[in-house]
């Protein structure tokens, strides 16, 4: 017997859940904004948040000095922190979904190590006659995509599970790390220093054009991923069940992996290796909004943006006047955070 009122109540409960998730997303958006303003304000010469806002929006009278610092130096870096964090968060989220494994991320699958090796190779050979501004990111991008191609090939094979792909990714990670060490061993001390500096992911290399490219790629990629929302949610129910719900699993895996690879490779090419955001942001999103992909993807993206932006603020304020590479900060803060998330999850189950 059907009782319409019980169903009405359940629909209302579902709508409330949806609204709560919207609130959480809105809250993270606010945090991202605050962190962004602080990020612009922090640096060798401290600015007040009010001065930052008035300078960005050109309201009131601001002095030329502040405008110059904000517009040409800090604004692109602060925006880059948000965009790269978003790309890594969203990319990690979809890798975890795709491979059905909470340990998947661009970093653990060896794509970041491959990018590092590509950048180092490009530095070692003097950029192959190209400007270093172009040749280093290009090298990083090409090798990152090569690593992804290997993962594609694995996932295109029949009877290869998500776990096998993870193991393949870990093998890649070790391969490229040892190749990188070899290259550093062969390099002159100055060159080794340059390579090392690239490996510490850092936002200081940001320019307006690199920001525009990264933002454009990330935006388009996330829109495409949002279109796959329901198929990806079905995939999280297990590959066999997704197939029985009408998903072409190997095709979905290749398409999403391609989008994720391009998005994260682009981000990594311009800022270097930044670990843990791709791993941790999806865990935060899962805890806050669950895995309904319509909320999980935006939330992972925002959590990543907030994390990298906050890490950027931190990197400038630990020692006033000095700037630590942000990649080191995310790694140091990321590890205990990841451990906490893992144990918190165990307790809740």
């Amino acid at each position: 017997m059907l009782t319409p009122s019980a169903i009405g109540t359940a629909i209302a409960a579902h709508r409330i859940r949806e609204r709560r998730r919207w609130h959480a997303i809105f809250l993270f958006l606010l945090i991202a904004l605050v962190s962004f303003v602080l990020d612009v304000a922090t640096g060798p010469s401290m600015l007040s948040p009010a001065a930052v806002v008035s300078s960005i929006f050109r309201i009131g009278d601001s002095d030329a000095m502040t405008d110059a610092i904000v517009m040409s130096l800090r604004l692109p870096m602060a925006l880059m922190a948000l965009v790269v964090g978003a790309a890594l968060g969203a990319g990690g989220a979809q890798m975890q979904t795709l491979l059905n494994n909470p340990m998947a991320s661009p970093y653990t699958l060896g794509m970041a190590a491959a990018a590092g090796f590509g950048a180092a190779l490009s530095l070692y050979f003097g950029g192959f006659g190209l400007e270093p501004m172009i040749s280093v990111p290009l090298g990083a991008f090409i090798f990152s995509m090569l690593a992804a191609a290997f993962l594609f090939a694995l996932s295109a094979m029949r009877r290869v599970s998500g776990e096998t792909i993870i193991l393949g990714g870990i093998a890649l990670l070790f391969l490229f790390q040892s190749l990188l060490s070899l290259l550093q061993f062969l390099s002159s001390p100055e060159l080794a220093q340059q390579i090392l500096f690239w490996l510490f992911g850092s936002l200081t290399k940001t320019t307006w054009p690199t920001l525009a490219i990264t933002a454009g790629v990330t935006f388009v990629s996330c829109l495409i991923l949002l279109g796959y929302s329901w198929k990806l949610a079905a995939l999280r129910m297990g590959e066999a069940r997704a197939a029985s719900l009408g998903v072409n699993v190997s095709r979905l895996r290749i398409e999403v992996l391609a989008v994720v690879a391009i998005m994260t490779a682009t981000a990594t090419s311009f800022v270097g290796v930044i670990g843990f955001i791709g791993l941790v942001a999806p865990h935060i999103a899962r805890m806050v909004v669950g895995e309904d992909q319509r909320f999980y993807l935006p939330m992972s993206l925002l959590a990543g943006a907030v994390m990298l932006s906050a890490a950027s603020v931190l990197s400038k304020s630990i020692v006033p006047g000095a700037l630590f590479p942000v990649g080191i900060i995310t790694a140091i803060v990321g590890v205990p955070f990841l451990l906490w998330l893992i144990f918190a999850r165990k307790r809740s189950l």
Binding site: W230, A234, G246, G290
Partner: peptide, 13 residues
């Protein structure tokens, strides 16, 4: 982390 309702809705993928 999907609710039962979301799981059932997926039947209409």
């Amino acid at each position: 982390a999907l609710t039962v309702l979301e799981v059932v809705v997926l039947g209409r993928l």
